[in-house]
């Protein structure tokens, strides 16, 4: 479904991604982990068209993504969330959803009753139906994260990139979030998850890819990767890992 071939990206001489290659098959839930500054979010930014790659190719369902704008990439069926939820604070929860529903559709098209009820269903599924008419800025952080996630679902994406979906959450909230993501995966959606909470990653992902200094240092099953010496060294340092 997603093929990343030898992608590199530098910022003013600092290499953020170094020859990164990764393939994600349909239905997979892949964890993308690594120490701070290892290039995880940069990889998401390059995939979703926020920055162009200096070298390499990215293909999604056979379509070349290089050169496409973020909105065109969304239209291809690839959605993402951010570390800090990027929601529209001055709009209501429902307006956030409607905005996403309108995006990319023809100018004259109006939301039909079918689409309206789908938005209501999505809000209900993520537990935000009671807050549909509240301003998004009044939501709690977990609710804002849920809104951001459910908003991506409006466009019915095939692949969702989740950037620290449980960042800043309590253990109970993290558990709820993991359940929500598990439900998404059960419905056949492909996900790549950046997360520092290893418990959450190991409970959700069958496969983990590890980045360090912009380079892939491990890619394999969750059990194997979490025992990998290079991974332990990247996280804990050479002495503790040994």
């Amino acid at each position: 479904m997603l093929q990343i071939d030898s992608v590199s990206r530098s910022f003013a001489g600092v290499v953020a991604l170094r020859d990164v290659s990764l393939t994600v098959a349909q239905g997979e839930v892949v964890g993308l982990i690594g120490p701070n500054g290892s290039g995880k979010t940069t990889l998401f930014n390059v995939i979703t068209g926020l920055f162009p790659a200096d070298h390499g190719r990215i293909r999604f369902n056979g379509r070349e993504l290089s050169g496409l704008r973020p909105d065109q990439i969304v239209a291809c069926g690839l959605a993402r969330t951010f570390q800090t939820p990027r929601i529209l604070h001055r709009m209501t929860v429902r307006e956030n959803m409607v905005c996403a529903a309108y995006a990319g559709s023809p100018l004259v098209q109006r939301l039909g009753s079918c689409a309206q009820s789908r938005l209501d269903d999505l809000l209900r599924e993520c537990g935000l139906d009671g807050r549909a008419h509240d301003l998004a800025k009044n939501l709690t952080l977990p609710e804002q994260r849920r809104l951001e996630l459910v908003r991506t679902l409006v466009a019915d994406p095939k692949l969702i990139l989740l950037d620290e979906p449980a960042g800043g959450m309590t253990p109970a909230e993290t558990k709820d979030k993991a359940t929500l993501i598990r439900d998404l995966a059960a419905k056949g959606r492909t996900c790549i998850i950046i997360e520092h909470k290893i418990d959450m990653i190991s409970s959700l992902c069958q496969r983990i890819c590890v980045l360090n200094f912009g380079k892939v240092i491990a890619d394999g099953t969750t059990v194997d990767v979490l025992r990998d010496e290079a991974v332990l060294e990247a996280y804990l340092g050479p002495q503790e890992a040994g």
Binding site: P70, D71, R90
Partner: peptide, 18 residues
């Protein structure tokens, strides 16, 4: 709606497909 979205948060608007 799109204009208000871009005005408030262009990055979010982009990734909503606008």
């Amino acid at each position: 709606l799109a204009l208000r979205a871009v005005s408030e948060n262009p990055l979010a608007a982009k990734f909503m497909g606008i």
